[in-house]
């Protein structure tokens, strides 16, 4: 399957990665190559096959729905590029 530059631009947008317009043709070509490789999967008869959910068949452990930790605001904010007054700070979201 061939990917056009418009599709490449849409995927970049969905992935929230800025791609300059002049880089789109090369990106589209790379996608086409990779998807061409992936398309071998169409040769496989998957009729009636369950898609894998978990590679090791085991029931996930459960635990009580309770608070087990907390009160670590400083630690959580310690790596933030911009933290103010106990919050993560970001550019204005709402006009």
């Amino acid at each position: 399957m061939s990917i056009d530059t418009e599709t490449a631009a849409r995927v970049a947008k969905l992935a929230r990665i800025r791609v300059e317009d002049d880089a789109l043709p090369a990106l589209a070509q790379e996608f086409s190559n990779i998807l061409g490789f992936i398309e071998q999967l169409n040769e496989v008869d998957v009729e009636g096959v369950e898609p894998m959910v978990s590679v090791t068949p085991m029931r996930l452990k459960r635990r009580q729905d309770g608070v087990t930790d907390g009160n670590m605001q400083e630690k959580i904010l310690s790596n933030a590029p911009d933290a103010r007054e106990g919050f993560f700070a970001v550019p204005k979201v709402v006009e």
């Binding site: 992936i38 999967l41 169409n42 496989v44 998957v46 096959v49 894998m52 959910v53």
Partner: peptide, 14 residues
């Protein structure tokens, strides 16, 4: 077409 098919193929590989 891609993701679910790949997961089915994964079942077959296992």
């Amino acid at each position: 077409a891609y993701y679910n098919r790949a997961r089915k193929v994964r079942t077959l590989i296992k």
